[in-house]
Design a binder for these strands. Structure first.
Lengths: 337, 337
DNA sequence: TCATTTTTTGCATGCGCAGTCAAAATGTCA
DNA sequence: TGACATTTTGACTGCGCATGCAAAAAATGA
């Protein structure tokens, strides 16, 4: 038991050379149908499967993609990762997970691990993707894709949803709903998603001659979002609508509104979020939000990454996919229609 | 840029042999402090890092653990995976993710992928871990750990929480709360967690001369759990308490109770769950449940797995960790204390 | 100081496969 | 049938490192 079947063994049994075996298992190689059959038969009988690691060694391609993630707290990430992993698997790649858990120590450690494993490419879905990562990977010639974020550096490819437009849609929606004191619970300002969503939202307000009534920061964390909500609600004059930068924080805000302030949603105050994670649809939240097209984002991310891997000199590209406004019950509806 | 630094280069620069370099980077090898310093200096200057894949080839150990997961829908799994990944990383192992997404096709495909990558060990956290997986891995000599499940086969190591006792605690608690018509929304009967929790629960009821008032199956899926809840609530006589097999389904049940039947929790009906995922603490759920000690489960899982990897012939072992009852507001409290 | 033990070192080999190259087999056309 | 183009094949080498082994160096003891 447990003895390794190598391509040599298969070769011997099939009465061919090891190279022949190798070729049979490498799509697109030149082998006659006759030897292919012999080899496949022998392989079958022996239970042979090519050793991926040896392949990686010899060919210089590991077919491993490093996936860097920070926190699963926000349901959006598990959902996205699941889709990324599936899409990669469908393309014969696999995901090596790197949790950059300790934000301080992580960058260096994670990057080293990543490079040590000779990953063919990297998908960064973590919030705190530092320049260090991207710099060193570039130096090592490893393509990097940013998922759900982008950086100023335009040599970096990134896939996001169209956060600006999404923010704008939300603003439009709230304005049309007749809200007059519209506040914002922001995420971490260092994140492009935050900046884009807020910018879009503000531009949407501005288009109707409005400005933000109040702003408070939740840094994408549940507890901080709750605190941010408390600040807004304790104010002399309360907002009548809040745009929370992502659904995950929106749930926190809703909890504070209902449990602590005993207010009703949307009668007393409207809430809108961003992401449309699975939970947003649950009756207890019923959250109006903008959907991130996770499936397409994952597909595009993988497509571009694989392209960069195969085609050394493909140009960096940034994609922002449109996501629809999903109207549910957490915000007062526009009356005029 | 991008040129590979090999141990040979470091060796040449340091004026030693390649073996020396290799030894310096392998803990526990015999090297003099002097050469170690020379090598480290040269390595530093060249930016050398050992190639993990080559290492794996040469040593036969990939330091990769295959993690098989099925669905992230249930928040418990992302939480667990995060902890498993972190614990493994802390031990210099990494996680290769295998999503067994298509339940029908998956087994064979996933197993093959797993074996092809020469993983050193496997953690199965998926619901549908078939015998096929465990059989083939055993044949290939790869240790397998079952996480949050066990199988009858006692050659398999498994880490779970003590589901029987947990179920029993919940029964005790509901009985002491004066409930008289206690129902159960079950998960998938094929899962050991389901069977153990239910058995414990029933034994707890029996200890007080009670039996289950009604039972309905949700198969661990949200929509089926909702349907199961509807069945229970549409009955002529409604239960006054429901034990739902995991928190994820409990949320679904709560939603149905409140949104569709306009009942109050816990005034009209008590709900208890199992897992204590992060969301259970949220005010909108405030779910009484049994905590799965995820951290310790992850630690034990990794500990045992690494032990099995290093020690060929370590005996299989099954661990069931105790988890506390977490009393919150979703179930009527016992009055007698 | 020399003989003996212990530690350190380098050499050589192999992990399992991919890919290069030249030789062999097959096919084509006149 | 022979001369040539085309496809298929096998020998060989290398990917980057770990490791057994024997030689060299250092440490120890008398």
């Amino acid at each position: 038991m447990g003895e390794k079947i190598t391509s040599y063994m298969v070769a011997k049994r099939a009465g061919v050379s090891q190279s022949a075996v190798s070729r049979v298992f490498k799509p697109g190689s030149s082998v006659s149908e006759k030897t292919a059959r012999k080899v496949r038969k022998a392989a079958e009988e022996l239970g042979y499967r090519p050793n991926t690691l040896a392949r990686a060694m010899a060919s210089g391609r590991s077919r491993i993609i490093g996936l860097v993630v920070a926190y699963f707290e926000n349901q959006f990430y598990p959902e996205a990762i699941e889709k990324l992993a599936n899409t990669l698997q469908a393309n014969d790649y696999h995901v090596l997970m790197f949790m950059s858990w300790d934000e301080t120590e992580a960058p260096e450690t994670v990057i080293n691990d990543l490079l040590d494993y000779q990953v063919d490419g990297i998908i960064a879905a973590s919030v705190g993707v530092t320049d260090v990562l991207t710099k060193r990977c570039e130096a090592a010639g490893i393509p990097v894709m940013l998922f759900n974020r982008h950086q100023n550096d335009d040599k970096l490819s990134a896939v996001t949803s169209d956060n600006f437009t999404g923010g704008r849609k939300l603003a439009e929606f709230l304005v049309r709903g007749g809200h007059e004191r519209i506040a914002h619970v922001a995420g971490w300002d260092g994140a492009s998603t935050q900046r884009d969503r807020e910018a879009g939202f503000l531009s949407g307000l501005a288009a109707h001659g409005m400005t933000l009534f109040a702003r408070s920061c939740g840094n994408f964390h549940r507890d901080q979002a709750q605190e941010a909500a408390r600040v807004l609600l304790r104010a002399e004059e309360r907002p009548d609508a809040i745009f929370v930068s992502n659904d995950h924080m929106a749930f926190a805000v809703m909890d504070v509104i209902r449990s602590e302030f005993k207010l009703r949603i949307p009668e007393d105050i409207s809430i809108v979020g961003y992401d449309d994670v699975a939970m947003s649809e649950w009756p207890c939240f019923d959250l109006t939000t903008v959907r991130q097209p996770t499936n397409r984002m994952a597909e595009e991310t993988v497509r571009i990454l694989l392209q960069m891997i195969e085609n050394e000199e493909s140009l960096p590209c940034r994609i922002a996919l449109d996501g629809p406004l999903v109207v549910r019950g957490s915000a007062r509806l526009p009356v005029d229609e």
